[in-house]
Write a protein that binds this DNA or RNA. Structure first.
Length: 652
RNA sequence: GCCGCUUUAGCUCAGCUGGUAGAGCACAUCAUUCGUAAUGAUGGGGUCACAGGUUCGAGUCCUGUAAGCGGCACCA
């Protein structure tokens, strides 16, 4: 007998091996009918699973949040069945649930197109309407392999072979069709319902390895209710509206063109935004860091010494004198990173342990030959500006420096309103320099710091491990922010490097007068300022806070009678440091309001005869139809206050 | 880089199964001086991404190249 505890606390005895379905049916047929799975001690399993030991039971129905994953997973199976019904010979591989839905990867001569969706969805609806029960069987390895071999499912055979011997091979059947699957699943495919949609097709490598064959992936999503699906689709639309590429065009911030793939043409307003960010970051450095600037081009031997030429060459641009008669035949590399330059500055002169830590910062423009398919607006480019710094310190100072950087990063992100931040620790990659002992040591320090960060800032920080994802010269922390469309972007980073200073023969004189290589910490707060700008644009949906907005105020006149007053106002505002434009065109005020609203100008100051006479202004804020009247002095004072960057506000 | 798709005026897009380019917005000129999301009239503007090919004839079909988009892989 087993003792089963119900959610209300009641306990009942059942023969061992009783299924959840039997228990539910014993309570009421309607409960059995609407229950799609059960949770035993909080773990969701098949309703038909036998209960072998005492457990707390919960019956999961379609409305249960935990059912969503099952609905999507079952939907992926139905997708696979539909595809094989429509195109026999298509091989199935895997079909997992992901954050906002599911996908299924197929192997097929001709990939799917979105036009196929109509037919596939129709077939899926047929399959769901048939409501075949989902039943589980455990097969032997041999049976599974021979079954899938006979079916010509080479990928499934490979999957079976890769499952550890001590694990059961579970097969889920839905009518005639079946799939190898870990489960759990609902009781029948009819429980999926009709609130599902195929979203897009894409190529994806088998098992995520670029040397493997390319599969054809179909993405889909499913919800318990149609309203939820509709809401999700609407949310996607809204996210697309705040795509930085779209806003960049609408707000006239930047553009791209064929001649410079992966490089940004910053327009006046975009560049002002960018420079406002730079100015902010520069202020945040003062006191702790010394700003430097190292050459854009250096002889490639510099990069041979650093190891980049060996490990990173595929990603580098190089350059030579273009003249026909030049005597300089040397090959120069365009810097993909700032570190070697900073090491040269460190090396210039003799350093004492008393000088450490030395922190060199640079708004360094780097060029990296990124794969063509990687480019994405200003988020992923081939030429970008890092808010980079390199800290030369002793081993004893390392942990403290990591913490100092962490505090700065969190403070900066906080100023921009980012709440949820993921910090990942990436450990040694396969391609790397340095001894295992060095890596052991560096990783141990980083691990300790990560735990401490988590303990201090667990409320806003989520931490995780990224095994094998470190830089070739050392482990790193990655600070990840999420864009409007739910894509994650690495921004800040802290990378410990026990390698580069030694390679360049950099050292300091220790208390015992010995030449000692310093520990080097590479660090960036925004990471790429271009990317960070893009994230800001999306984060604020173009409605930048006043201090960041490239044009803060537009003074618009109603008639020409107010022109002189408008210019007087503008002069007064500029004198106080506000970024103001005039709009004295011969256009209706409606037209001007509309135009500047679309351009996302945060503040419109409207002046006509009345205001000119009284020395007042009528203020209209972006996103609101309300108008506030106040005196010129009041208006300027409050705008100046609001336009003060958050870090400057903190000073007094 | 890989799979698929896309590329027509400054922008957003029409252009059926091949018969020598169209709209809206924007821009220019003129009129209008009008109190909070589009005043009206007139006008200019495209070797249809680029290079080949098929055809009597290509924006439309085929091939290649480039850039972009959605993913994958890579990454700040």
């Amino acid at each position: 007998m087993v003792s089963v505890t119900f959610p209300d606390g009641a306990q009942r005895q059942f023969p061992a091996g009783v299924t959840g379905f039997e228990i539910a049916k014993g309570i009421s047929p309607s409960l059995a009918k609407r229950t799609i799975a059960m949770a035993l001690d909080g773990v969701v399993v098949d309703l038909a699973d036998p209960i072998q030991q005492d457990a707390k039971i919960e019956f999961v129905d379609r409305e249960d949040p935990r059912a969503l994953e099952l609905i999507r997973h079952d939907c992926a199976h139905v997708l696979a069945e539909a595809v094989q019904a429509l195109w026999p010979g298509t091989q199935v591989t895997i079909g997992p649930v992901i954050e906002n839905g599911f996908y299924y990867d197929f192997f097929r001569e001709t990939p799917f197109t979105p036009e196929d969706f109509v037919a596939i969805e129709k077939k899926m609806r047929e399959i769901i309407a048939r409501d075949a029960p989902l039943t589980k069987e455990v097969w032997s390895r041999e049976d599974a392999i021979s079954f899938f071999e006979k079916k010509g499912e080479a990928f499934k055979v490979e999957l079976v072979q890769s499952i550890p011997g001590n694990e059961d091979l579970k097969i889920y059947k839905q009518g005639e069709w079946l799939d190898l699957c870990r489960g759990p699943h609902m009781t029948s495919v009819g429980k999926i319902g009709t609130a599902f949609k195929l979203m897009k097709v894409a190529g994806a490598y088998w098992r995520g390895k670029s040397e493997n064959p390319m599969l054809s992936r179909i993405y889909g999503t499913a919800f318990a209710k149609q309203e939820q699906l509709d809401a999700y689709l609407k949310q996607i639309e809204e996210a697309e509206r705040r795509d930085h590429r779209r806003l960049g065009r609408e707000m006239d911030l930047f553009h791209f063109q064929e001649e410079a793939p992966g490089a940004i043409f910053w327009h006046p307003k975009g560049w002002t935004l960018f420079q406002t960010l730079v100015a902010y970051m520069r202020r945040r450095l003062s006191g702790d860091y010394q700003e430097v600037n190292a050459p854009q081009l250096m002889d490639k031997n510099m990069w041979e010494i650093s190891g980049h030429w060996g490990w990173y060459r595929e990603n580098m641009f190089m350059s030579k004198s273009a003249g026909d008669d030049t005597e300089d035949e040397r090959t120069y590399a365009i810097k993909p990173m700032n570190c070697p330059g900073h090491v040269q500055i460190f090396k210039h002169g003799l350093r004492s342990y008393r000088d450490l830590p030395i922190r060199f910062a640079e708004f360094g423009v780097v060029h990296r030959y990124e794969p063509s398919g990687a480019m994405h607006g200003v988020m992923r480019v081939r030429a970008f500006t890092q808010d980079d710094a390199h800290i030369f310190c002793t081993e004893e100072q390392l942990a403290e420096e990591c913490h100092k950087i962490n505090e700065l990063i969190l403070s900066v992100y906080g100023d921009f309103g980012f709440g949820r931040i993921v910090v990942k620790l990436s450990t040694r990659p396969e391609k790397r320099v340095g001894t295992d002992a060095m890596w052991d040591h560096a990783e141990a320090v980083m691990m300790r710091v990560l735990d401490e960060i988590k303990a201090r800032h667990g409320d806003i920080i989520e931490t995780s491990l990224n095994p094998g994802e470190g830089a070739f010269y050392g482990p790193k922390f990655e600070y990840v922010l999420r864009d409007a469309i739910g894509r994650d972007w690495q921004c800040g980073t802290t990378q410990v490097d026990f390698n580069l200073p030694e390679r360049f023969g950099a050292f300091y004189i220790s208390p015992t007068s010995e030449k000692t290589p310093p520990v080097m910490v590479h660090r960036a707060i925004c990471g790429s300022l271009e990317r960070f700008t893009g994230i800001l644009i999306e984060h604020f949906a173009g409605h930048m806070p006043l201090w960041l907005s490239p044009v803060q105020v537009v003074v618009a006149t109603i008639t020409q009678d107010a022109d002189d007053y408008a210019f007087e106002l503008i002069a007064a505002m500029r004198k106080r440091g506000l970024r103001v434009d005039a709009d004295v065109r011969n256009e209706k005020i409606n037209y001007k309001v509309r135009e500047h609203s679309l351009a996302k100008i945060p503040v419109m100051v409207v002046v006509g005869k009345k205001e000119a006479l009284e020395k007042t202004v009528s203020i209209r804020r972006l996103g609101s139809q309300a108008q506030t009247a106040m005196t010129m002095e009041e208006a300027i004072a409050s705008l100046v206050e609001e336009a003060t960057p958050p870090d400057v506000k903190r000073i007094d």
